[in-house]
Amino acid sequence: MVEETYIEKVCIVRANSIVVDTVPRFSSDDSLFAEFSKQAFRQINPEYPKFFKMDSLSKLAVLAAEYLLEGQPIDDLALVLANRSGSLDTDVRHQESIQNEQEYYPSPATFVYTLANICAGEISIRHGLQTENAFFIAEDYPINTARSYTEYLLKSGKAKRVLCGWVEFFEEKYDAVLYIVSPKGTNKHSAENIKKLFE
């Protein structure tokens, strides 16, 4: 049975830069997320055309996960994600496509992203994670809930490791803080240490 759990690795994507643990991995002067994410993703994975079909929230989640999971074992890796806006950025786009009767062309490729958990599904598909998945929505990162839920998955044996964190995107404002929790490491998986990731 798992006793101690640790924050093993962290990836932060914000303000056009990507930092893994404390190492800067990518940054760009491009202010648009679409361009920034394209360059950043190509640098680490030039061969995944599916990436360019995703909405912004999924791009953000998959991009952060790509850097975080580089060189990592993915066996029995569960996902516990959260954000504030859900899929609202894409919801607004879908609403625009159905707002007027004369210009009524709802797009299946847009609509499918009007669910917050799709970005978790995209990470699962990219890395072949047939594992526990949960998506929460809260005003701020629900530290205690994410922590308890993750501990549950590890201690009950329902996962060996957990990819957790925050993936928020709305109207070009974005922030991703993803981290791996496992029975291995030195940085304890405590509420205080999770809080520090968001400072």
């Binding site: 958990n117 929460f136 809260a138 308890s148 839920y149 549950y152």
Partner: peptide
Amino acid sequence: ILVSHACVSGVLAISVAKRLIQM
């Protein structure tokens, strides 16, 4: 706590509540 996980949300919400009570 808000669970928004497509069409499994309702069943998953029971699991989430159970798991957090167990923790």
